[in-house]
Design a protein around this nucleic acid. Structure first.
Lengths: 166, 166
DNA sequence: AAAGTTGTCTAATCAAAAAATATATTATAG
DNA sequence: CTATAATATATTTTTTGATTAGACAACTTT
């Protein structure tokens, strides 16, 4: 029941792209620096986001990545559902057929409701909301982004591993 | 973002205990047989449930386990929160202190909302609800419980492993 | 009191998935 | 051309979820 780093880092990356939306392509290296996340890992995460049509990329110098739609039109659910894949909170929720009794299983209904609650929650939050909140906060705390988020570690500045263990 | 077998199997066990509530202690062996779950695993899961005061146990022959409260008064959230521990959907949600910037992190708020949505959903479902649903369904399909639930495997009858992989 | 049943506890093992890293290749602006 | 940045693939490392094992403790029944 843990939200994976794929979803969390991916969302942070998308928020960076959103904040940069009207300023042309943004490079992974930039995102990495600002968010303290590994370049290599972000490169992996952006592939499914591209395939899903949320991001497009420009190669070569001055290249980078840019959202295909304005941040107001991309929800966190759009991002998370792509990065989590179609696995669902339980195998039997998206694929009832793998269990012959899915249609009579009372606990399966419970997990379906959880799945629905998550989807509905995340569908109500857009990248624009998060950018806005970031900027409001930066007025009061003039330093940049969120370098850790609990356990993310800096690309160049490894963090004390006691933070990353749990 | 997967619900662990701890929560799923644990909930199924608690539903069995709920169904047996007014008939004295129920043995793990029985639950294992009816639900097709490993005795050894269930034994582990029941310990935190006891510590949390949801279950009490009777040793020796004719012993077993019994809910400390009627099924109407135990929600799925009671069960799941015990079995998942206090880890939360993200480390920084229950322990803001592990990240110096939790209070200004916009994505942390998102995961907090997810956490809240899950909690509220599961708090509205009681074990009695699930027992009731089980019995309704059994009227139409006179065979017993849900042996698989997607990937749970029978204690004595191992399932084709292609089911258990994802 | 003996025997046998059931729960309790700790440890060890296994497997899968998540997370992170490495290398080589392709496109393109300048 | 050359430097930059994306793309693709592969590999490694780490974590943790899941499962199994065995010794021990409590209790009921006879």
């Amino acid at each position: 029941m843990k939200i994976t780093t794929r979803s969390r880092y991916g969302t942070r990356m998308m928020v960076e792209l959103a904040a940069h939306y009207d300023q042309g392509p943004l490079q992974i290296g930039e995102i990495s620096r600002k968010q303290g996340l590994s370049v290599k890992y972000l490169e992996q995460l952006i592939i499914p986001l591209k395939r899903a049509g949320l991001v497009r990329s420009v190669r070569g110098p001055k290249g980078g990545h840019i959202l295909t739609r304005p941040p107001e039109e991309i929800t966190v659910w759009d991002v998370v559902s792509v990065l989590e894949g179609s696995k669902g909170v339980t195998l039997c929720v998206p694929n009832p057929d793998i269990c012959e009794r899915s249609h009579i299983c009372p606990t399966r209904d419970v997990w379906s409701l959880v799945s629905k609650a998550i989807r509905e929650t995340l569908s109500q939050i857009t990248l624009a909301d998060l950018v806005k909140k970031t900027k409001e906060v930066e007025k009061h705390f003039p330093e940049a982004g969120c370098p850790l988020e609990g356990e993310g570690q800096g690309a160049d500045e490894p963090v004390d591993s006691s933070l990353t263990s749990g």
